[in-house]
C-alpha cells in the first residue's frame, strides 16, 4: 500500500481517506463473478429440470438423500465454526481460535470425503456424465462445487498453518477474514445446489 502523501498540497477536498482494503474488495468482486458463473450453470440446470422430460430419467439411479442431508449439515456446521472463530481471535483467545479453525478444516474435509465416496457408489450404479443429461448436470454442478470446496480448503489449510505459527493477532485478522468470506460463499451455495439437485 502506498504510504500517506508527504506533499502538503492545498486542501485536498473531501477525499475518502477510509477506503476499503484492496484485498477485501477483490474477494467481494471475485465472489460476484463466481455467483454469475453459478447462475449460468444453475439456470441451465433449471431449464432442463422443468422441461417435460421425466427427471431423473428412467433407469438412472436415485440420489442418496439421507447421506447427503447429513453431509449438508456437516458443511453448514463448518460454516458455523468458521463464523465463531473470528471473535476469539479478536479477543486474543488464540487457543479457541485455532481449535475452531481446525474444526472447520476437518468438517470441510469430511464433507469432501463423503461426497467422493458417494460419487464412487453412484458411478457403480451407472450414473455417469455421458449416460444422461441428468448425470452430466449432477457431476457438473456437484463436481464444480466440490472443486470450489477443495480450493477453499487449500486456502483454509494455508491460513491454518499461519495460525499455528501465531501469525495472526487481534489487529491482524485480514487473511482469516478473506478466507472466511470465500468459505461462506462455498458453504452458502451448497444448500441451493442440494435443494435443486437432490430435493426437487
Amino acid at each position: 500500500m502506498d504510504g500517506p502523501v508527504s506533499g502538503s498540497g492545498p486542501s485536498a477536498g473531501p477525499a475518502s481517506d477510509r477506503r476499503m482494503e484492496p484485498a477485501r474488495l477483490g474477494i467481494i468482486l471475485f465472489i460476484i463473478a463466481e455467483i454469475m458463473f453459478f447462475s449460468g450453470l444453475i439456470s441451465s440446470f433449471v431449464m432442463f429440470r422443468f422441461s417435460p422430460v421425466p427427471w431423473p430419467p428412467p433407469g438412472q439411479p436415485r440420489l442418496p438423500l439421507e447421506v447427503t442431508s447429513a453431509n449438508t449439515l456437516i458443511l453448514l456446521l463448518s460454516g458455523l465454526t468458521f463464523f465463531l472463530a473470528l471473535k476469539p481471535l479478536k479477543a486474543s483467545n488464540s487457543q479457541l481460535f485455532k481449535g475452531l479453525l481446525t474444526a472447520t478444516a476437518v468438517l470441510g474435509f469430511i464433507f469432501l470425503a463423503v461426497q467422493g465416496a458417494e460419487w464412487v457408489r453412484l458411478l457403480h450404479f451407472g450414473l455417469t456424465v455421458h449416460a444422461s443429461i441428468f448425470g452430466g448436470f449432477f457431476y457438473c454442478l456437484v463436481g464444480i462445487h466440490a472443486v470450489h470446496v477443495t480450493g477453499g480448503l487449500i486456502a483454509l489449510l494455508w491460513v491454518l498453518n499461519k495460525a499455528w505459527k501465531e501469525k495472526y493477532s487481534a489487529q491482524n485478522t485480514l487473511g482469516v477474514e478473506l478466507c472466511r468470506m470465500y468459505w461462506f460463499f462455498v458453504v452458502g451455495l451448497w444448500p441451493i445446489l442440494f435443494f435443486l439437485v437432490y430435493l426437487i
Partner: peptide, 25 residues
C-alpha cells in the same frame, strides 16, 4: 464484462464437457 461473462464461462465449460467427455448438454 465482469457481470456478463460468468454464464458464458459456464456455457464454455459445458461445451468442453460435450466435446471431450461425451455429455449432451
Amino acid at each position: 464484462f465482469f457481470f456478463s461473462v460468468g454464464p458464458l464461462i459456464a456455457g464454455d465449460f459445458m461445451l468442453i464437457m460435450d466435446n471431450m467427455f461425451g455429455t449432451g448438454f
